[in-house]
């Protein structure tokens, strides 16, 4: 009995370690992320919210408060990209907005995202599933707000 118990324990430990190792390797090799860019035209005046922006409404309201009362979605684009690849959106003023996925930080597992928007460049790190905004460009009596979210794909 003890002999069988010993053998089974060793085998189980081996399977456990192998599976854990395989999972960690698989995770380390994951280098795809979904980037989503949502372009919003925000302005004062008649309160409005595009139906497409409802999932973002809580975050928008908390972030911008009373600065704007109308939020209209102009365009949205999402794509699953590998490390070093980007998702690009054409803006209504003729420029383009580019978000590039640049991998995951080793310790915290944050996603590196680089933005390029005309002469503006920035590098940020965000949590998987997190959203941040770039804003300030004037457009049609209002401001362009660009929501960027990145989610690590398994």
């Amino acid at each position: 009995m003890k002999k069988y118990l010993k053998k089974t324990s060793i085998l189980s430990a081996f399977v456990f370690l192998f599976t854990f190792f395989a999972l960690s390797v698989a995770k380390a090799q994951t280098s795809e992320a979904e980037l989503k860019i949502t372009v919003i035209h925000a302005k004062s005046g008649e309160p409005y919210l595009s139906p497409e922006l409802r999932p973002l409404w809580r975050t928008i309201r908390k972030t911008f408060g009373d600065q704007f009362s109308s939020y209209r979605q102009i365009t949205s684009k999402a794509g699953v990209v590998q490390e070093g690849k980007q998702v690009t959106v054409d803006l209504p003023d003729g420029t383009t907005f580019e978000a590039m996925y640049n991998g995951v930080t080793k310790k915290a597992g944050l996603l590196r995202v680089h933005l390029a928007f005309g002469e503006f460049r920035t590098k940020v790190r965000i949590h998987s599933g997190g959203t941040f905004f770039q804003a300030g460009r004037k457009y049609d009596k209002g401001t362009l707000i660009i929501a960027v979210s990145a989610t690590l794909k398994d």
């Binding site: 975050t59 944050l110 460049r121 920035t122 590098k123 940020v124 790190r125 965000i126 949590h127």
Partner: peptide
Amino acid sequence: DNRCYVDSY
């Protein structure tokens, strides 16, 4: 978690 760390601009 929406926290964002801006490394450079």
